[in-house]
Write a protein that binds this DNA or RNA. Structure first.
Lengths: 360, 360
DNA sequence: CACAATTTTGTGTGCGCACACAAAAAGCGA
DNA sequence: TCGCTTTTTGTGTGCGCACACAAAATTGTG
């Protein structure tokens, strides 16, 4: 382990000077700077992040703007837990993480949460850009304050976000098409069920649909997926009627694709006897969806690794704030294919082993 | 952030005493110990692992015994890279990691590598228990020296290993069966191709075969997989002849299961026209296998996340050595289902973002 | 050339903890 | 009670680094 002291000795300067060179501080003559840099290079010196974190009194603040979760939509619990876990991991490196939650269907609460977030004077922000107009406002503010921001889960274009952590939704949809169609030699039809609620605001969902349709188009499969739009998927009675009527009048439908995380609601609405000859594929291993895999009502779930999204985005920003470089602009997390048998090994809420530094 | 100093002040003792209580050292009277413990509890004190690591001069040594890799078997490269990456991450926490490689088909080199490993005076050992007799010898030695050991990738019973990091091979095989059979309504037959070389020594492979057969048995599918054993899979001419003869005389075969990471060799041996109507499934996204996915000769690969296996085992042991508790005995990593479209997002050699603390 | 202003370089302190060592208190036999 | 050992408690130092401050070297000006 080579230290600053060693470098100082080798370069015949003081430790302070080495420190200045390492951090590109002012007040070093060109000559000595070159000299020290050469020694640094030669010894392949890297600062000890542990010692650095300990000495660094200046704290960084990462603030996270994320949708809240409730029992009917547990999806957002996972990224939140990932953020929490990462927060614990980076706490001792002088990084403070705070989360602010908003109601996914209420732009006002989005702005409100952002306002509260600003109070924390963040060094950097992680956000789920949920509403497009309000996002513009928020980003204007962030850019005026010169605060870097990272998009989580939802990728929208046209901003100077420092990156995106999430899934390649289009490919994920394509994969859904492929899996549903796999081994089907005879002609057959597939149905996309989506709620109009989702269509308007979440372009991840429309990208999934696009990818799904792409599969059938690109592979010249003699079948174009049909789409069934549900006004209010929470209205069970109405939804039941619409779906079952459609499925009755279209017996050629062999499989159903639900591009949101609400496939369990669709399952609840489909008549049992029809359900048995259908293959279903949806997104996200929420507890309710996982249950559907286990009782064989759903064949596949595609996971976007929401926990990892939260975890990774915090870790990424931490690395950035600690003067390391930002790896790439888009961090696409794996497209996990989940079935009944492997879902238990793809835990939602765990990443790496628990580091419980508890007092014995 | 609450420090030892704070605790000392609150309990009205010196920092040294608090330190003694935290680490269960001798020389503290019952009375003060209780007092300090209460304060510790009350403030929910946790040691700052960063400061702790910096102060701790005593270094831990984790030594890893792992098969070597070459161009024809790149599988073991990934766990090794995972180990290297983890080594980098834990280096500054006072943990030194060294790897020792052996030839997978040479028990002597296994023992030889172990001998070299012992020279490092390891605090703990991570090993791939490849040969059963020699493993017994090795473990006798480790237990005599009171060195804890963790199994990586290969799980064998009957030892006091502190844990296992790897895949649930049986379930992985079961999944392979399910995927290959998915959507096949008409009766059809499947073939398992394995090299006798693998059978003898690697029980992961026999577990996969067991799981694969289980699928057909448990689901009362009117088809029992046939098995074709290859003496020497590296003898291309002979292998070609055996495989193609079998496939010609058994046109009912619709799919092939290769329970090892050598599916690319099988692909090379199958006649092109026959290959096109076959579905193939194998293990591990080595570069050669990934290529087979991309050119559509293989439908599925099951990944055992070899990089993560290496990474996680080192991190796990590090946590243990740093006085944290060991989470569970068996750490089953996810059973990743890979297809052409998602393989690029399941990189073999990456885990979490690079922490390149390079000097700018 | 003297002297101040400025640039460049060196030194000291503390982050929170672990551990060696010093000091104080308690126990104990005579 | 004294003098001693043993137990208990307190203090000081360093891990590698960041940063404030002090010192030295250089430059510029009259």
């Amino acid at each position: 382990m080579i230290t600053i002291k060693d470098i100082a000795k080798a370069a015949n300067v003081s430790e302070g000077t080495v420190d200045r060179v390492i951090h590109n501080r002012i007040g070093v003559s060109k000559k000595t700077e070159a000299k020290v840099k050469k020694v640094l290079e030669r010894h392949n010196f890297k600062v000890n992040p542990v010692a650095s974190a300990l000495a660094l009194k200046k704290k960084h603040q990462i603030s996270v703007l994320i949708p809240e979760h409730d029992d009917s939509d547990l999806f957002w619990k996972s990224p939140y837990l990932g953020v929490l876990k990462a927060a614990e991991d980076v706490k001792n490196f002088g990084v403070q993480v705070s989360s602010f939650k908003f109601n996914q269907s209420d732009p006002i609460s989005y702005l409100k949460a952002f306002k509260a977030l600003l109070e924390t004077k963040p060094t950097a922000v992680i956000m789920v850009p949920n509403f497009s107009n309000e996002t513009k406002q928020i980003i204007n503010r962030l850019e005026a304050l010169n605060i870097p921001y990272l998009f989580l889960n939802i990728d929208i274009e046209g901003f100077n976000n420092m990156g995106y952590v999430g899934q390649d939704s289009c490919t994920a949809g394509y994969i859904a098409g492929k899996l549903l169609h796999f081994n089907n030699l005879q002609p057959c039809e597939f149905l996309i069920i989506q709620s109009s609620h989702d269509i308007t605001k979440n372009n991840a969902i429309s990208n999934r649909v696009k990818g799904f349709k792409d599969y059938f188009f690109k592979n010249e499969i003699n079948s174009t997926p049909k789409t069934l739009k549900i006004e209010d998927i929470n209205n069970v009675l109405e939804t039941k009627e619409i779906i079952n009527l459609y499925l009755q009048t279209h017996p050629e439908i062999k499989g159903v694709f639900v591009p949101s995380s609400r496939i369990y609601k669709v399952v609840d609405c489909i008549d049992n006897n029809r359900l048995q000859d259908l293959k279903l594929i949806g997104f996200d291993n929420t507890p309710q969806n996982t249950e559907c895999l286990l009782n064989d009502s759903v064949s596949f779930l595609i996971s976007q690794k929401p926990f990892d999204q939260g975890y990774k985005s915090v870790r990424l920003l931490t690395d950035y704030l600690m003067q390391n470089k930002m790896p790439k602009h888009k961090i696409y997390l794996p497209i996990d294919i989940l079935i009944k048998e492997n879902v238990k090994y793809n835990g939602r809420d765990e990443f790496i082993s628990d580091k419980n530094n508890t007092v014995k």
